[in-house]
Amino acid sequence: MPTERWHKSSYSGASSSCVEVSEGLRTAVRDSRYRHLGHLDFPADEWARFLYSLKGGFTPPA
């Protein structure tokens, strides 16, 4: 991802142990404590469905 802009959840506060996300056409996810180990990469629509399911939905609205 050439223009990565990483952010973490506001729920993390000042904690250095969290998940960071870089969103775009593809979504990258990494552990903030082990950035040097790389990241997992997902198509943006799959990431959106994942987040939607965490909020209690089954599939995102079209």
Rank of each mutant, 00 (worst) to 15 (best):
G24K: 15
P61A: 12
G24E: 14
V21H: 00
R35I: 15
R49C: 03
S12A: 10
S17E: 10
V21G: 00
R35D: 08
C18I: 04
W6T: 02
S53P: 01
Y11Q: 05
T27L: 04
A48Q: 06
E4N: 11
E46S: 04
L25K: 15
E23Y: 00
K8N: 01
G57Y: 08
F50M: 08
H7Q: 14
L51P: 00
E46W: 09
R5P: 01
L54G: 13
F50R: 02
G24M: 06
M1I: 03
R33F: 02
E46R: 12
D31G: 02
E23P: 00
L25G: 15
Y34H: 09
E20H: 05
Y34Q: 13
L40H: 15
E4H: 13
K8C: 00
F50C: 09
Y34A: 10
S53E: 10
S15C: 04
W6L: 02
S17K: 05
L54K: 07
F58L: 09
H7T: 11
F42K: 01
P2A: 15
E4D: 10
G24A: 11
R35C: 13
D31N: 08
F58V: 12
V21I: 13
P43M: 04
S12T: 06
P60G: 12
R35T: 07
S16M: 07
S12N: 08
S17C: 10
C18F: 03
P61G: 04
S53G: 14
F58K: 05
E20P: 00
F50K: 02
P2Y: 11
L40N: 08
S32A: 12
E4T: 09
S53A: 08
A62N: 06
S17V: 05
Y34P: 00
P2Q: 09
S22D: 06
P43H: 15
D45H: 14
H36N: 14
S17L: 04
T59V: 07
L54P: 00
H7S: 14
A62R: 11
E4I: 11
F58M: 09
P2L: 14
L40R: 12
G57S: 13
H36R: 07
W6K: 04
T27P: 01
D45W: 09
R26Y: 08
S9A: 13
F50Y: 12
F50L: 14
F58H: 15
T27H: 02
E20I: 01
A44S: 12
R5A: 10
R35F: 06
C18K: 03
G38H: 09
S10D: 10
G38P: 03
D41W: 06
H36A: 11
A62I: 12
F50T: 12
R26Q: 11
A14I: 05
